[in-house]
Amino acid sequence: MAVEIQVEPLGDHEHLVRVREGAAEAETRIRVTDGVLDLPQITGADETRIVHETVAFLVERQPVIDIPPMIDLDDLADAYGAPYLEDLGRRLTAR
């Protein structure tokens, strides 16, 4: 089933994200942090794209309804570690 991800920049490195997969929907606020933006594989990437690819990473690993209402990318990087950061780097260079 296709997943719809809509990212709305709110300013000051914050984004509102709406995710839909079939009947399941979630809304989350994501804060893009300098710790992630400064990583070599991420530097220079568009924030909206970072957020979109981060949510795509998450929905591959958990149901949409389990996406938390607020996500800080430093916390996410700490929780998932190198697999998240390496996957994000690949996703950002793939397109």
Rank of each mutant, 00 (worst) to 15 (best):
H15M: 05
R90M: 08
D72E: 13
E14V: 08
R61I: 04
D87E: 15
E4C: 03
A77E: 01
R95A: 13
Y84S: 06
A77V: 04
H13L: 06
E4N: 13
I65P: 03
A26T: 04
L92G: 10
H13Y: 12
T48L: 08
I67E: 04
D34M: 10
P9C: 09
D75V: 02
P83L: 06
R20Q: 14
E25M: 07
H15I: 00
V3Y: 05
V64Y: 02
M1L: 13
A2W: 06
P40K: 10
R31S: 08
E47F: 00
D87I: 03
R18Y: 09
D78R: 11
R61P: 01
D66E: 14
D74R: 08
V32W: 02
M1H: 08
Q6L: 14
R29S: 06
E27R: 11
G89L: 11
D38L: 11
I42Y: 03
A23Q: 10
D78H: 08
T54F: 01
A45Y: 04
V59R: 09
L85S: 07
V36P: 01
D38Q: 14
G44A: 01
E14N: 10
D78P: 00
V55H: 06
A2C: 04
H52E: 14
R90G: 05
I67A: 01
V51T: 04
R18A: 15
V32P: 02
A56K: 15
T54M: 07
I71H: 00
D72R: 08
R95Q: 10
E8Y: 07
D75S: 08
I67G: 00
D87L: 12
I5G: 07
G11H: 07
V19I: 15
E47C: 11
I50V: 13
A82E: 12
H15L: 09
D87S: 15
D75A: 12
E86M: 11
L92C: 09
L39G: 00
L73Y: 00
E4I: 15
P9F: 09
L76T: 01
Y84T: 05
I71W: 00
D74E: 14
R90L: 11
G35P: 07
Q62H: 05
A24F: 11
D66L: 14
L85N: 02
R20I: 05
E4P: 01
V17I: 15
R61F: 02
Q6C: 13
G89S: 09
D72F: 04
V32F: 02
E21K: 15
D72N: 15
L73H: 03
G81F: 11
E25N: 03
V7C: 07
E14R: 14
V59C: 09
V3D: 04
T93Q: 12
E47W: 02
E47L: 15
R49Q: 13
G44P: 03
T28K: 02
P9A: 10
R91E: 04
